[in-house]
Each structure stands twice: as C-alpha cells, then as structure tokens.
Simulated scan of single mutants.
Amino acid sequence: MRIADFLRGGSRSVELDLLDNLFLMADPERFDSTLASRVLYEFGTLSKALAADLHELERIKGVEGPIIAAMTLVASITQQSLRTQASAQPVINDWSALLAYLHVTMANLKSEQFRIMFLNCRFMIIRDEVLGYGTVDHAPAYPREVIKRALELGATGVVLVHNHPSGDPEPSRDDIYITRNIIEAGRHVSVKVIDHVIISASGYRSLREGGMLG
C-alpha cells in the first residue's frame, strides 16, 4: 500500500496535520514535510506512534533529537492530563475517564504490565502503581503482595488492570483465576476488588461487566 493511499481519510488526515505541526514546531530549521506521513505509515495511528520506544522511533530516517523529545513530551502530557481527570472524582462516577487513561497508558505496550489503582472508601484513586512486568503474554500477579500493598496504603478497594499485547482483550482462564484469588485474599481484610480491566489496542474487557468476578 502506498503512503498516500494509507493516509487518505478523515481521522488519518487530522492525525497527519497534528503530527506535521508538532514536527514543525520541534525542529523548524530541518522540517521535513514527508516525515509525519512516514511516521504514521510506520506505526498506523498517532497513539501507537506516541507509544513507540526510542529504538522504534530511531529506525525512521529524520526522527531524532528534537522530534523524539517533542513526541515524548506530548505523550507524557496526555497521560498526566488523563490521570488527573481520572483521579478528580470517584472512579464509579466516571468510569470512562479511567478507561481513557488506561488505554493511552497501556494499550500499545509490547509486553504485559500488571497495574493497580488503589482506592479509598469514597472510591477515589489514592495511588496508581505498576506491581508487575512480564513477557508478551504474562505478567505476574501475587494476591498476597496486592493485598499487602493495599493495607500499607490504607486502601479499601482496588481496580486491577493488565494489558494484552496480542490485541485481544478477552480474559484467559488464568486472568479469571488470579482475580478470584485476589478477591478471596482481600475479603478477609476488607479490601474489595472493584474490577479487573484488561486493556488492548482493540478495546477493553471488564470482568465486572462480564459477570466474572465470582
């Protein structure tokens, strides 16, 4: 497929304009009018481009110094803005804000990450932590460690989150099994599992919405 054919269409046209302007501001003296289109063609979407790591970006001719710094800054600002919005009110009042933050932060990761949102008694986020990193298809999650950390923080609830780099957010048997083990461990010390959300580039799945919390 030619780059011109790939970029034809409303959403890609908007993303191209945004990236083009970002690159122009980042490095006006060496601005290359073809760079934004080549970056989008390489990664497919703006969100995937902003989530790319240094080695992936450096493979594209012209993506260096100021361009990489600008892309990293935009990605960080976006994540922080969405994190602030998700933390501004009880998560049960605006679930979409939490999902937006999780999608931007985790949807395009190349390996699994196990994250926990620790909540107080008003369902406000008091801490957002990554408790485990894994391979492309597994991130370790230990019930005892999850509950221990919740008690250390004074949390009364948790939202478990991990990503599926495969792009398929459907929960595995292991996902359901470990979730129920954490639920059982928390029940003895009044720490409630509000949900377990699985994030992927194609969307998300909620074990609570799917009736799989047990």
Rank of each mutant, 00 (worst) to 15 (best):
I68S: 14
D168I: 15
I194K: 03
E209Y: 07
L50A: 11
R59Y: 02
T105L: 12
K48W: 04
R187F: 04
N93K: 09
I125A: 01
T84Y: 06
R144W: 03
S206V: 06
A97N: 14
S96L: 08
E29I: 04
A185N: 05
R8A: 14
I3Q: 03
P28C: 03
S33H: 06
M117F: 12
F114M: 07
W95Q: 12
N120G: 06
M1I: 08
F6N: 13
D137F: 13
E145D: 14
H55V: 12
G65Y: 00
V159F: 07
L131V: 15
P143V: 07
A75P: 00
V197W: 10
K148I: 03
D32A: 05
I60G: 13
L82T: 01
S87C: 09
D17T: 14
R83D: 06
P140H: 00
R144M: 07
P143T: 08
D195Y: 07
R30C: 07
P66H: 02
I92H: 15
V159Y: 11
P90F: 09
G211C: 05
F6V: 12
F23P: 00
I77K: 00
I92R: 15
D20Q: 09
T135F: 09
C121M: 06
I198G: 02
L24K: 08
G9T: 05
A139H: 10
A49K: 00
R8N: 15
P169N: 08
E152R: 04
F114G: 03
N93V: 00
L46V: 09
Y177K: 14
D53Y: 04
M1L: 09
K192I: 14
E170M: 10
H162E: 10
L151S: 10
E209A: 15
Y41G: 14
L35E: 01
R173P: 00
S172C: 09
F123Y: 14
V130E: 08
R83G: 01
G186L: 01
G214C: 03
F31L: 02
S76N: 10
T84R: 08
T135L: 10
A150E: 02
I199Q: 02
S11E: 13
L213H: 03
Q89R: 15
S96C: 04
S190R: 09
G157V: 14
V136W: 07
E64Q: 05
S202I: 07
E56K: 13
V197F: 12
D168C: 10
R115E: 11
R187W: 03
S13E: 12
L119R: 00
R180L: 04
S11I: 08
L99T: 05
V130T: 15
S47Q: 10
V161T: 06
D32R: 02
R208A: 14
G214A: 14
V14R: 13
S111D: 13
S200K: 05
L213R: 02
V159T: 08
S190D: 12
K61Y: 11
S37N: 06
D94R: 15
I176L: 01
L82Y: 12
A141R: 15
G214P: 05
A97G: 06
I77F: 04
H103P: 01
L18Q: 04
N163P: 05
